[in-house]
Nucleic acid binder design. Sequence first.
DNA 1: AAACCCGATGCACAAACGTGCAAGGAGTCG
DNA 2: CGACTCCTTGCACGTTTGTGCATCGGGTTT
Lengths: 324, 324
Amino acid sequence: MNPSKAAQISPKTRDALTAAQLYYLQDLTMDAIAHELHTSRSSVSRLLGHARETGLVEIQVRSPLDMPRQLEGDIRAAFGVTAHVVPVPDHTSDVERLDRVALSAARILGGFFDSNMSMGVAWGSTMSALSRHLLSKATHNSTIVQLNGAANPRTTGILYASEILQRFGSAFSATVQQFPVPAVFDDPATKAALWRERSISRVVEMQKTLDVIVFGLGSPFAGVPSHVYIGGYLDDDDFAQLRSTGAVGDIATVFYREDGSTDEIPLNERSSGPGLDVLRGIARRACVVSGESKLQSLRGALAAGLVTDLIVDSGTARKILAAS
Amino acid sequence: MNPSKAAQISPKTRDALTAAQLYYLQDLTMDAIAHELHTSRSSVSRLLGHARETGLVEIQVRSPLDMPRQLEGDIRAAFGVTAHVVPVPDHTSDVERLDRVALSAARILGGFFDSNMSMGVAWGSTMSALSRHLLSKATHNSTIVQLNGAANPRTTGILYASEILQRFGSAFSATVQQFPVPAVFDDPATKAALWRERSISRVVEMQKTLDVIVFGLGSPFAGVPSHVYIGGYLDDDDFAQLRSTGAVGDIATVFYREDGSTDEIPLNERSSGPGLDVLRGIARRACVVSGESKLQSLRGALAAGLVTDLIVDSGTARKILAAS
DNA sequence: AAACCCGATGCACAAACGTGCAAGGAGTCG
DNA sequence: CGACTCCTTGCACGTTTGTGCATCGGGTTT
């Protein structure tokens, strides 16, 4: 539209940037900044909020090098993954615990993704919470790819999953690649047929060359069933079958046992999620977990080597260590 | 002392770290944190202050990639140096301007220095202000080296210069290398003799292999004379000589002209500062300038190619561009 | 053991801050 | 041109935060 190139910077962003400099780098009060910018203090407050949300300001908490945090070091020693332990008091409710972990995860994620990269994202209650807390960080030529289908016998699931996807997309100003298939097929032959369709196979191929994936864990048989298990994605027979094969958890509707094995879990043939060996081919695999009910599932995911970066609440972190 | 290795983390630091996580990464109020940590809210406030000062928390303000700040881009284009422009309103007093630039410079400096590096620092009013604002950042096997002597006919200057040096040293937990010689020798032969002393030549050699240097600029003939010119470092004859040779500024008591040349400035033979060609051999050379009185001096330093990173207030940045 | 110093604590108050709300544009549609 | 929405602004209020001060406990000196 505009032939000039420099005009792309909105005056709002410009002000937010100066305000952030003055506030965070020079320790001026908002009042003083308001005066310098010829506006009201409250506008400065909002400007700064905007600056934080859009990633103009980046706040990192780094443990001094000689003091890697205890739990995180222990987890690396025990499981060989990089852990980010989110401190949460023990008596916290599961809902708040999930939210606090998701909030921290969202901030950490910013460091994992950049221009020219592609990120696979799953869906579920964890991912939903996470997506709500994303800070935006402008990238170019990057893509967000849906990992598994979200349709079920009742709904197409598109609204739910795409809401999550979209939030990722706009946070990183990346293009979004939907995956409009059922979460779990009734008939494996249908899946095979669909996978031969070019529109679908294109996405399947993209999934194999991702740079990062982010996912929560499913835990079909734990106290609070995760979203997959209450939306009608699986019927009673499926459940019975899962239980009898010893499955304890899933990532993007692909199931595994506590020892990490996946052989002879027939449901996986019908699942729309990427096979676990595909996952293992991806460089960075960030797993977000909160709450005791996911313990068994987490144990399986770690045993299966599906995780490179673990973001977890302190209570669960302690428990997974205690059991090893 | 203690055979255990993990005991080096003080409980204070540990708390500060958790508090910082909760405050900056989870947006809890200090009240809530105080409750979780079983202490008072005011302690949390102090804990967070401690966390910021000791570098547990790092706050960066980054302009979005597609919008490098205007002035900074212009300066790079005109002079080929990386600029950090510190926004300061035009009507600010010189004292406050200096302090705000020094504050920002101190924060930026953290990114320039790390373990296994050595940093040369000058002294003067700019460096003094800067040193007072340093945030600490733990490093190992690193050294701070004094660039030029501080003694003059009246005092040994050791207290003044070493105060600055010490602050750098403790901020980075680096060893400090003093340089106990006069700023300017009366007799060049004395300098030559002293430079042959091993205790002194050791430091002179260190100066040649620095990774970073930080310095302000002197401006002998501008409105507010910099510290060098009021402490008796130079006598009237020296001044007259400088003026007649056309010198407009100095870095660590080594003088240059507005066009960047240094030939035939006899005073430099007697100066304790490193020759400008030694400076140019150092990879990163951060120059901190504030205020109009340093304009001519800055022009010379840029012309002489002595600067790789320039930290400057917005007013001066604009003026140096206008004149080019 | 008394005297002393030093750092940490909580209190109380003032300063600084976030946000719901109503008012004021700027742009759009009929 | 008026009616509409959508975004921005400043105000006012309650909340959150920084800090001087008095206090306290542990360690050192005399």
